[in-house]
Amino acid sequence: MASPQDVPRAELIGCPNCDLLHHAKHVADGERAICSRCHTVLIAPRAAAYNRALALSVANLILVVAAVFHPFLEIHAAGIVNRVSLLDVATSFGSGALVVVSVTSVAMILLVPLLRAVFLAYALAPLALQHRAYPGARWAFRVTQQMKPWAMTEIFAIGCAVALVKVADLARLNFGPAFWMFIVLSAFVLLVDRSLCSWSIWAALDEAEQEPGRGTAPAPTVRP
């Protein structure tokens, strides 16, 4: 690699995990650029990733909304049937400090995945449709990335299975439609996150904002 002084700063990429500088060369579709020191994946472009990610994000949005209104588990015991949806979970911890737990749980299972799907669709739609970036697209994409560890649909799906076994001797449990929606949702979220290359999207957002008639990317703020 040439010394960093010889390369324009916009063509340099710093490893987020070890701070090593690399020259952000063009990476062919389907290939990966990996940090030579810590092996973090730096660039991994996927052609058609935007279209697919956009379609999946819209699907995720529909799935999350539909899952709210359907039961994910139903219980049969002594002639009583009880079906629960996530709205019931949100209100299940009754009173006191434990309410925090149910509200946090529902936020991680529903609200965060919902917001991620909305923001990602908002940031990616212009890239997929080759329009100019919408205002706030950068903010939306950044928030999507930051919320990633707090979206816990797949963990909730496993939790349903554990719950089913746990009360097996007390009553008979069946999965409701929302459970299967969460399984599909978890798979879709995984597909989206795997197909997205952060560096390529930031570069595409830079480009999409610099089309004719639009201002350039905001200048960095420098300390006096």
């Binding site: 994910f72 588990l73 219980i75 015991a77 002594a78 009583i80 009880n82 629960v84 019931d88 979970v89 209100t91 299940s92 911890f93 737990v101 149910s102 749980s105 529902v106 991680m108 299972i109 816990m152 963990i155 909730f156 496993i158 939790g159 349903c160 554990v162 719950a163 746990k166 009360v167 007390l170 009553a171 449990l173």
Partner: peptide, 20 residues
């Protein structure tokens, strides 16, 4: 977080009046 979710699920689900 699995165990927390299990507790949340079961508390919502298993409300069968006096039975359990």
């Amino acid at each position: 977080m699995i165990d927390v979710f299990v507790v949340a699920i079961l508390s919502a689900l298993v409300q069968l009046s006096v039975v359990a």
